[in-house]
C-alpha cells in the first residue's frame, strides 16, 4: 500500500474511533447513535443467523439486472445518437439537465403500474444509471482522434472491425467510467426505491428497522451497505487504474 492509502485508512479509523468515544462517553445519546463496535457485533450476528441472506440476494440481483440493462442500452443509445450529429446536438441539453429532475417521485407511480414486485425497483435503478452510460459513451466516442479512423480506412477495415478493434478500445477509459457510474447509480436507485416502498431488500430492511425503533439492526445494516458499496467501488477503481496504465495513460 502507498503512503497515501495508509493516511486514508488512518483517517477512516480515527473517524470511527471518535464516533465510538462520543457515544461511549454519553456525549451522543444511544437513542440517536450506537457505538461502531456495537454495529459490527450486531452485523456479525445478523449475517451469521442468515436473516439477511434473502434481502441481500434480492438487492444484489436487482442491482445486477438494472446495471446490466443500463450499460447495454446506454452504450447502444450512445453509439446510435453519436452517429447522428444533429440529434446529438439537440439531445445534449436534455442529457445534461436529466439529473436535475428528481425522478424518484416517479417511483410510487411505477409501483402502481407494475405492482409490488422487483420491476419498479429495477426500472428506477435503470432510469438513474442509463443516462450516465449514454453521456460517457458519447464523451468516449468524441475523444477518439481523427487519425485512428484514417488508419482504419488505410487498413481497409470494415465497419464492424473498426468498431471492435479501433473505436471501442480507444473509447474504453470513458466507457469504463460509464460502467463505474452505472454500478454506483444502480445501487443508489435500487436501495432508495427499496427504502421508499418495497416487498424486501436491504433498503426495506433499514426502513423497517427505523419504523420499529430497532437502532441496532438499522445501524448494522447501514454499515453493511456502506462497506459493501465502498468495496465494490474500490474494486472497480483498481481495475480502471490497471486499464489506464495498460493504455499508457
Amino acid at each position: 500500500m502507498t503512503r497515501l492509502a495508509w493516511i486514508r485508512l488512518a483517517i477512516v479509523f480515527a473517524a470511527f474511533a471518535v464516533l465510538e468515544w462520543l457515544v461511549q462517553s454519553g456525549r451522543i445519546s444511544t437513542h440517536t447513535m450506537i457505538p461502531p463496535t456495537a454495529m459490527v457485533t450486531e452485523l456479525w450476528a445478523l449475517l451469521a443467523s442468515g436473516e439477511l441472506t434473502g434481502d441481500l440476494v434480492q438487492t444484489l440481483s436487482n442491482v445486477a439486472i438494472a446495471c446490466l440493462l443500463s450499460v447495454t442500452v446506454g452504450f447502444a443509445t450512445g453509439a446510435g445518437v453519436h452517429a447522428v450529429p444533429r440529434l446529438r446536438r439537440a439531445l445534449d441539453p436534455f442529457l445534461t439537465t436529466y439529473y436535475a429532475v428528481p425522478f424518484f417521485v416517479f417511483y410510487p407511480l411505477l409501483v402502481f403500474i407494475f405492482g409490488m414486485n422487483n420491476l419498479p425497483m429495477i426500472a428506477i435503478g435503470f432510469m438513474f444509471a442509463v443516462v450516465a452510460m449514454i453521456i460517457n459513451t458519447l464523451n468516449g466516442l468524441d475523444k477518439i482522434p481523427r487519425v485512428y479512423a484514417k488508419v482504419a480506412r488505410m487498413h481497409q477495415m470494415g465497419r464492424l472491425a473498426t468498431a471492435l478493434r479501433v473505436q471501442i478500445p480507444a473509447a474504453m477509459p470513458n466507457l469504463f467510467t460509464g460502467l463505474k457510474l452505472s454500478v454506483a447509480y444502480s445501487f443508489i436507485g435500487v436501495i432508495a426505491a427499496e427504502f421508499i416502498l418495497a416487498p424486501g431488500g436491504l433498503g426495506y430492511a433499514i426502513s423497517f428497522a427505523y419504523d420499529n425503533f430497532d437502532n441496532e439492526t438499522m445501524y448494522a445494516l447501514m454499515l453493511f451497505i456502506l462497506v459493501l458499496v465502498t468495496a465494490i467501488n474500490m474494486t472497480l477503481h483498481s481495475i480502471e487504474q490497471r486499464l489506464l496504465r495498460r493504455q499508457g495513460l
Partner: peptide
Amino acid sequence: SLPKITLY
C-alpha cells in the same frame, strides 16, 4: 457514490 438515502 454511496446511497445516502440509507442515512436519512
